[in-house]
Design a protein around this nucleic acid. Structure first.
Length: 359
DNA sequence: AATGCGTGGTC
DNA sequence: TGACCAAGCAT
């Protein structure tokens, strides 16, 4: 009844492919912190961190995170601000907040045991189709597909599938394909093997086909057009927004920072106040701040321009230094802190760049 | 379905 | 050096 626009070629030897892939994986898999055991909590955390993030970047974050939050209960009992601090610099911060929410739910509803039930696991915050399959297969040995960018790239070449992998529908196609060829003996190694192959051999550019363990199964290699696969439409260019960033110091040498809103970009992270230049000209800044924060500031110099590229937008922030009179009161989410105290607040990289300009 | 959501590495 | 890429999810 399910009609996909693709059927696996009869000449594709899935049994031999599984054997060759698993044999290669067993002999070539990297020793990674989350591969030391099969603790579902560790597997879960690693999969969240690995979303859109490279292994080398994740490793130190994962080790520190596990040192600080060794068990589900300890993470569940933590303050979100501390969890965000552990995530600082890793990006996509909603991952951390969703993981924290989900972990608390697991403690309450499932006695702190990661559910192995597909439906229960899927409804947890931050667990989508990929992470669901990854946790089920790696932690519980269930034969579920875990289709990420690696898997789509590898299989698009092996089976010569030229559907646009940027389209959601295409991922479903690959999930159906994996269901048909996955190993029921070792689904964990099968899924990880596909991803490992994508990371170590079947690169996006210049795939190392000459040393590929499944070269003889690869239709793209046979055609000689592996460089043209996968097909992927490119994303739009980011638009640039210009801001003023205010580094405000009061009489005690403390700096003004504020907590960002609880949703949207960099939610619940802390920042030096910024304002869109198209909304307020530099001449209006003093008045704007007075009205917005109830504090009188005195601009004394303009610093450098800081540029920061996000996934979907570019910020250019002109840093402005100013002094504040008095400034003990702190309405809402703003407050004055010393440079030392500032270290305890989770701040995104754009704000770290601004912070480094303080001398 | 299309868009919002970070950061670092590569060429 | 800008563009692309990397173990995606929420809405």
């Amino acid at each position: 009844m399910e009609q996909t626009s693709f059927t696996i070629p009869l000449l594709f030897n899935d049994e031999a492919f599984r054997h060759d892939l698993l044999t290669w994986y067993q002999g070539n898999k990297r020793l990674l912190p989350w591969r030391e055991n099969q603790d579902p909590y560790r597997i879960w955390v690693s999969e969240i961190m690995l979303q859109q993030t490279q292994v080398d970047t994740v490793i130190p974050y994962f080790n520190q995170f596990m040192e600080r939050y060794p068990t589900i209960k300890e993470l569940a009992e933590a303050d979100e601000q501390n969890v965000l601090k552990s995530w600082e610099g890793l990006g996509y911060y909603s991952r951390a907040r969703n993981l924290h929410t989900a972990v608390k739910e697991v403690v309450e509803k499932y006695d702190a045991q990661v559910p192995s039930d597909k439906k229960e696991l899927k409804q947890l915050k931050g667990i989508g189709p990929y992470t669901l399959g990854a946790v089920l297969s790696i932690a519980f040995n269930h034969p579920e597909p875990a289709v990420d960018g690696n898997v789509m790239r590898v299989l698009s070449r092996i089976l010569h599938i030229d559907e646009d992998i940027a389209k959601p529908k295409t991922k479903k196609l690959f999930e159906e394909v994996v269901k048909e060829i996955i190993s029921y003996e070792d689904p964990s190694s099968f899924n990880q093997g596909l991803m490992e192959l994508g990371a170590l051999v079947c690169h996006p550019k210049n795939p190392e086909c000459e040393t590929c363990p499944v070269q003889q199964h690869c239709l793209a290699y046979e055609h000689g057009d592996q460089k043209d696969l996968p097909v992927k439409t490119k994303q739009k260019k980011q638009k640039v927004s210009s801001y003023y960033g205010l580094v405000l110091k009061n009489d005690e040498g403390k700096f003004f920072i504020q907590k960002r809103p609880d949703e949207g970009l960099l939610a619940n992270m802390w920042e030096f106040p910024i304002v869109l230049q198209e909304e307020f000209d530099q001449k209006e800044l003093v008045n704007w701040f007075e009205v917005e924060y109830g504090l009188s500031i005195n601009i004394y110099t303009q610093g450098k321009r800081v540029r920061h590229v996000f996934s979907h937008v570019i910020w250019e922030v002109d840093v402005i230094y100013a002094s504040v009179k008095g400034g003990q009161k702190s309405d809402g989410d703003g407050k004055f802190v010393t440079l030392e105290e500032l270290e305890r607040y989770p701040m995104p990289n754009i704000q770290q760049k601004i912070k480094k300009l303080i001398h």
